[in-house]
Write a protein that binds this DNA or RNA. Structure first.
Length: 150
DNA sequence: GCCAACGTTGGC
DNA sequence: GCCAACGTTGGC
């Protein structure tokens, strides 16, 4: 089963917010590569939740895909911070999925620790640092689960 | 289709 | 708040 990593700024939406909501749409992704990865997701896929722009940044928990990709209507809403003036219901260029809370990391994994781990050296997190939705290898996921206690 | 200008991400 | 990396836009 494929696994993914999705970034969120905890000041905006954190693993605890997801815990509280249980299921949440993952809106606001405005990058084609990230969008295409979301479109490839299946219900039940594991999602590693990564806190970016945080102190510290790092892996904060686990979620799973609860609904496959559907149009991200926040792009059509002029009042939304994710508004895309070039988009509309007839175009629907952006997608989102729903994610369901699975676990908060018992041990938060800060970026420093991830970078220092040789087994994670080839994670896209480091080579494609600006990609907010990305696939995660099984062996990386196994290491993350074990290190975070989840 | 190239590429310079511009905007955004995200670590620090 | 700064700035490097890098994705996107738009003129040509």
């Amino acid at each position: 089963m494929p696994a993914w990593l999705m970034k969120t700024e905890p000041d905006v939406f954190s693993i605890r917010d997801l815990h509280r909501m249980r299921v949440s749409p993952w809106d606001g992704v405005r990058n084609y590569q990230a969008r295409n990865f979301m479109r490839a997701m299946a219900v039940g896929d594991t999602v590693v939740i990564y806190h970016s722009n945080a102190e510290p940044s790092g892996i904060a928990g686990l979620a799973e895909v609860a609904r496959t990709a559907y149009p991200d209507h926040t792009a059509w809403d002029p009042a939304s911070p994710y508004h895309d003036p070039k988009d509309g219901p007839a175009i629907a260029r952006w997608s989102m999925v729903d994610v369901r809370f699975v676990a908060e990391a018992k041990r938060f994994l800060p970026l420093d620790q991830l970078r220092a781990e040789p087994q994670l050296a080839d994670m896209l997190l480091f080579s494609r640092s600006r990609l907010s939705v990305q696939p995660v290898e099984d062996r990386h996921l196994a290491w993350i689960r074990s290190a975070a206690g989840m």
